[in-house]
Amino acid sequence: MRITQGCFSFLPDLTDEQISAQVQYCLGHGWAVNIEFTDDPHPRNHFWEMWGLPMFDLRDAAGVMMELNECRKVYGDRYIRLSAFDSSHGWESVRLSFIVNRPKQEPGFRLNRHEVTGRRVQYTTTSYAADRPEGQRYGAS
């Protein structure tokens, strides 16, 4: 099951050249770019780990790509995403976010059904990856 979060998630994985072009677009608009990673891609998991600090004041995508490649060396078995933050008055939020690295195997989610008061049914989703401890969620079973 392929995780579909952020921009471009329904497209085939972007090449490094295409990622660099998107980063250059963001930098051209004055947006700060940051790199984040996680092994729990649940849609409500908004708190991914940051790789370094947000990259303010960069003008060339090569610096971001260098940091992305370093992150891939350490966390290449996890999800990695780039986010571009617009700090201009009136926006002050993420303008663009997309996944740039995925684990080889994406286990997907299970749908949990809960019967609650009044014969109502509630549903939640749980990542199959979360069944294993952090740092051991991908790879050999």
Results as ranks from 00 to 15, higher is better:
residue 17 E to H: 12
residue 18 Q to D: 14
residue 19 I to S: 03
residue 22 Q to S: 13
residue 23 V to P: 04
residue 23 V to I: 13
residue 24 Q to P: 00
residue 25 Y to G: 05
residue 26 C to N: 11
residue 28 G to S: 09
residue 28 G to R: 09
residue 29 H to K: 14
residue 29 H to W: 05
residue 29 H to A: 13
residue 30 G to C: 10
residue 30 G to K: 08
residue 31 W to N: 00
residue 32 A to N: 08
residue 34 N to W: 00
residue 35 I to W: 09
residue 36 E to H: 07
residue 37 F to D: 00
residue 37 F to G: 00
residue 38 T to Q: 02
residue 38 T to V: 07
residue 38 T to P: 08
residue 41 P to K: 00
residue 42 H to N: 11
residue 43 P to M: 02
residue 43 P to N: 03
residue 45 N to I: 10
residue 45 N to V: 10
residue 46 H to S: 12
residue 46 H to W: 12
residue 46 H to Y: 15
residue 48 W to K: 01
residue 49 E to Y: 13
residue 51 W to H: 11
residue 52 G to R: 11
residue 52 G to L: 06
residue 53 L to Q: 14
residue 58 L to I: 07
residue 58 L to D: 08
residue 59 R to W: 07
residue 61 A to P: 06
residue 62 A to I: 12
residue 63 G to E: 10
residue 63 G to R: 04
residue 64 V to I: 14
residue 64 V to D: 01
residue 64 V to Q: 03
residue 67 E to V: 06
residue 67 E to D: 15
residue 67 E to G: 06
residue 68 L to C: 12
residue 69 N to M: 11
residue 69 N to P: 03
residue 70 E to Q: 12
residue 71 C to H: 04
residue 71 C to R: 03
residue 72 R to M: 14
residue 73 K to F: 06
residue 79 Y to C: 09
residue 81 R to G: 01
residue 81 R to Y: 10
residue 81 R to K: 15
residue 84 A to I: 04
residue 85 F to L: 11
residue 85 F to S: 10
residue 86 D to I: 03
residue 86 D to C: 15
residue 87 S to M: 06
residue 88 S to C: 07
residue 88 S to E: 12
residue 89 H to G: 04
residue 90 G to P: 05
residue 90 G to R: 10
residue 91 W to E: 04
residue 94 V to M: 03
residue 97 S to E: 14
residue 98 F to E: 09
residue 103 P to A: 04
residue 103 P to Q: 03
residue 103 P to H: 08
residue 107 P to Q: 09
residue 109 F to V: 07
residue 109 F to G: 05
residue 110 R to D: 05
residue 110 R to E: 13
residue 117 T to E: 15
residue 117 T to Y: 07
residue 118 G to D: 01
residue 120 R to N: 13
residue 120 R to S: 11
residue 124 T to N: 06
residue 124 T to K: 05
residue 125 T to R: 11
residue 126 T to F: 00
residue 128 Y to L: 15
residue 130 A to D: 12
residue 131 D to K: 11
residue 132 R to E: 07
residue 135 G to Q: 12
residue 135 G to D: 09
residue 136 Q to H: 14
residue 137 R to G: 00
